[in-house]
């Protein structure tokens, strides 16, 4: 049967070709390939570790950052509150002072006005006394020029 024909030559050639292939691969070609694969795996593992570490540190930094931001915000709030309070105090003080001043001015003005009115009134009374004296002189023909009369008229005008 041809199917199971024994060909020692072919077997020997198989050994030779496989042996050659194995030798060349083993000695020359595979070591560099295997080494590069191993290196790459090491690099990848290292990169993964590195990435994990970086991630961890990033998380830490983020946490810290948020803490710092919270702190800063609280501080700012506090400062703002203090300032506002101070401003309020200042404002109220200023307002009080201004009111006081205004009041003083007003009262002074009132005083002055009263004085002036008094002066005016006096002048008016005197004028009136003169006027009354003159009028009564014209009517009666008697002169009321004496000091005594004038005072009497003045007194009268005051009670008017």
């Amino acid at each position: 049967m041809e199917l199971f024909e024994i060909e020692p030559g072919l077997a020997i050639w198989t050994w030779l070709s496989f042996g050659l292939l194995f030798f060349i691969l083993w000695k020359f070609l595979l070591p560099s390939l295997l080494k590069s694969i191993k290196d790459r795996e090491k690099t990848i593992a290292g990169a993964v570790d590195n990435a994990e570490e970086i991630q961890k540190r990033l998380d830490e930094i983020k946490k810290e950052e948020s803490k710092i931001i919270d702190k800063a915000r609280a501080q700012a709030d506090k400062i703002l509150g203090d300032t506002r309070k101070e401003a309020d105090v200042l404002k109220s003080r200023l307002i009080a002072k201004a009111e006081e001043e205004a009041e003083a001015i007003v009262s002074r003005a009132k005083l002055k006005a009263a004085e002036e009115r008094e002066v005016l009134l006096q002048a008016l009374q005197e004028e009136l006394a003169d006027f009354v004296c003159e009028a009564s002189e014209k009517v009666t023909g008697v002169s009321f020029t004496s000091e005594k009369d004038r005072r009497m008229v003045k007194e009268m005008a005051r009670t008017l």
Binding site: E7, G9, L10, W13, T14, S17, F18, L20, L21, I24, L25, F28, L29, L30, S32, L33, S36, R40, T43
Partner: peptide, 28 residues
């Protein structure tokens, strides 16, 4: 040489060519 023998040689040459080219490529 017989046909099967030739096939063996051809495949050995093919493998060697493939691995030679593969080994020359040094990129990651």
């Amino acid at each position: 040489i017989s046909v099967h023998q030739a096939m063996l040689f051809v495949s050995v040459v093919l493998i060697l060519l493939l691995f030679l080219r593969a080994a020359r490529n040094k990129s990651m």
